[in-house]
Design a protein around this nucleic acid. Structure first.
Lengths: 224, 224
DNA sequence: TCCCATAATGAACATTGTTCAGTAATTTTT
DNA sequence: AAAAATTACTGAACAATGTTCATTATGGGA
């Protein structure tokens, strides 16, 4: 029994479809409000600071109402993460479109990725820094986004190889993983540990630059 | 009112200290049992699968009893992590003691670190992969261990520089951070993501070897 | 035997995510 | 316009969590 299966728009009264559409709009608006409230809470302290009751308070509805719009808490947070990661994908896409020389393109991609992580630490941690199965996120959505980000990397590296700049190894995907490993390491350390351990930390910026330097150097030299 | 402040061992009856010692032993034994039970649970699914009630069930005591031996859950899990990380420190120490040539020493250190992470994913994630403040671990203990591991790296790298093998940058600590970033990235990706994203993953072993290769290469070439 | 420090417990509290029977609101039908 | 039906929402409840605390054994020393 689908609810809106009258594609011809014919109803007994002219107002019928108008009402349905308004209702749909309202439904969407509340969904958006829930996401908005959850986002604000998410900024505070990540996954745990998003409680169903806190969201409910913020939008002035009962907690149980939220379950009419989202299956559960994970789905809400996942939606937030997806929204955020679309920013990353878009930025990486922009870099690819710029048509920079391969090396500059790679460097820009690395900077973009790390800076994104620093900008959105909670989302980053949740998507890339936790067990896929647990209280975190397993949803196909997030997986998709992660993969998309990787694919940008692969393309950038493949372009560099085709231009003859990097020595071609077995496959660009494998190189991308190495690059990703390094970016990810730098990002999570900057997010989680920068300043800790009584260690003489360089600035975040200079750590990013050293990462860029290290990766490009490693890609330029022949594989072992 | 310290409990056992009779260092001379003098008691009115000879049996007194014997009982006290037995009591202390028993106390320690139960503490150990708690840790043991918690460890077993921790292996299942990390932090969240360690519940006070589950521990209590396992040792056949009431949940509240546990609080006579540990301040809270974090302290228990922290103790487990410390125990585990002592293994890493010990192994790294062993490598340092072997007196391998600098490059081999570094490579061994990297392999050791990553393999340790794969062996103890839950502990690794908790100590190196989460916000310092939250439900995880803030304790001085864990911080100390993290720092100790880093210091091994610093020494290995410094040795390489003093041997004239690596070009000396501003300071070995800074190099160590870069190396750590990469190791950490590889480790957490192997722990969290290996096999995901419908990606053609190389084997864990070959990813480790590529990491070793990349790092040594990067350290060997002059800094930008 | 009586005392008393220590050990251990059970019941309770607050907080979580989540469910579900029931109520209010609104739209469609008569 | 009244009735029926659909949709939207809610409040109370459940189970699980960490944690506390007044109360009850326990068992060694007097």
């Amino acid at each position: 029994m689908p609810r809106f299966d009258n594609p011809s728009g014919i109803g007994k009264h002219l107002g019928v479809m108008g009402t349905a559409e308004r209702r749909a709009r309202e439904k969407d608006a509340l969904r958006q409000k829930i996401l908005q409230a959850a986002s604000e809470l998410f900024l505070l302290n990540g996954f745990d600071s998003v409680t169903m009751r806190a969201i409910a308070d913020r939008i002035e509805y009962a907690p149980s109402t939220i379950y009419l719009y989202f299956k559960n808490k994970v789905e809400i947070v996942d939606a937030i993460c997806v929204e955020t990661f679309e920013i990353l994908i878009e930025r990486l896409h922009g870099i690819e479109q710029q048509g920079l020389p391969p090396l500059a393109s790679l460097a820009a991609g690395i900077r973009c990725y790390i800076e994104f992580g620093i900008e959105h630490p909670h989302q980053y941690r949740l998507v890339f820094g936790s067990v896929p199965s647990d209280p975190s996120i397993e949803s196909a959505e997030s997986n998709l986004l992660g993969r998309q980000a990787l694919e940008h990397l692969v393309r950038i590296i493949a372009a560099g190889q085709q231009a003859g700049l990097f020595p071609a190894t077995t496959n660009p995907a494998s190189d991308a993983l190495i690059v990703w490993s390094h970016m990810h390491g730098t990002t999570s350390i900057l997010i989680n540990d920068h300043g800790r351990y009584n260690f003489p930390w360089p600035s975040k910026e200079s750590m990013i630059e050293r990462s860029v330097d290290l990766i490009t150097k490693a890609l330029l030299s022949p594989a072992a």
